[in-house]
């Protein structure tokens, strides 16, 4: 565990907490893509099946359980409890266009052709693009609430910090995992446009509004 990884994980945790608090406090999930949240639930379910087979550390187990549980909690809040506030007319991204290629890619490019390894690889590929329905929703409505922007910034920072973690581990531990690194790069690049808007607008107290 190094500082980049720790802050990456904390940033991820913060993103989830921000999102759940936003939904709970405002009793609304307006502006949030349920499609992205479903993809995240699929991602964590398929990645953390190794909870049954491999023990890494108490920290690792605890965080995995939190990520899986909160992803289902979010989906439940959006599709059941606060269903009426869900922005379904704008949340029209077709997630099969992300899931199917991720499945195919995981079957073709993986480290080992076993069920758990292919599912792990699938989850890495799918996570890299899982935010697209959310970014699509923001671009469709042309704006995002500040709290949604903070959520997206924390969520995007997590993989960016993981990139630093991988650079560190490459030099310090001679460890690298090419699949995770390439997917992590893709994932971070997808946020770049948003990061730019966040820094130039949201941090200066303005609302995140896309140019018309």
């Amino acid at each position: 565990m190094n500082i980049f990884r720790l802050f990456g994980d904390l940033s991820h945790l913060l993103a989830i907490i921000i999102l759940l608090l936003k939904i709970w406090k405002t009793r609304s999930c307006a502006g949030i893509s349920g499609k992205s949240q479903i993809l995240f639930a699929i991602v964590y379910t398929s990645r953390y099946l190794d909870l049954m087979t491999t023990y890494i550390s108490a920290y690792n187990t605890f965080m995995k359980i939190v990520f899986v549980a909160t992803s289902y909690a979010t989906v439940f809040l959006m599709y059941m409890k606060f269903k009426a506030t869900y922005d379904r007319n704008h949340d029209t991204f077709r997630i099969e266009f992300l899931i199917v290629p991720a499945v195919i890619l995981a079957l073709v490019i993986n480290q080992e052709f076993t069920v758990l390894e292919v599912l792990w690889t699938f989850s890495i590929y799918l996570e890299s693009v899982a935010i697209l329905p959310q970014l699509f929703l923001v671009s469709k409505t042309g704006e995002a609430e500040s709290i949604t922007s903070h959520y997206l910034f924390a969520l995007g920072s997590y993989r960016a910090l993981y990139l630093l973690n991988w650079v560190y581990r490459y030099y310090a531990e001679d460890h690298y995992d090419l699949i995770a690194i390439v997917a992590g790069l893709v994932q971070t690049v997808l946020y770049c446009d948003f990061f730019y808007l966040y820094i130039t607008k949201v941090l200066k107290g303005k609302k995140l509004q896309l140019p018309a």
């Binding site: 990884r5 994980d9 991820h12 190794d50 491999t54 890494i56 690792n60 965080m63 995995k64 990520f67 480290q111 080992e112 390894e117 792990w120 993981y162 973690n165 460890h175 995992d177 995770a180």
Partner: peptide, 10 residues
């Protein structure tokens, strides 16, 4: 074939 390492990250 390289040995598959455990995935110790999240």
């Amino acid at each position: 074939v390289p040995e598959v390492e455990e995935h110790d990250e999240l």
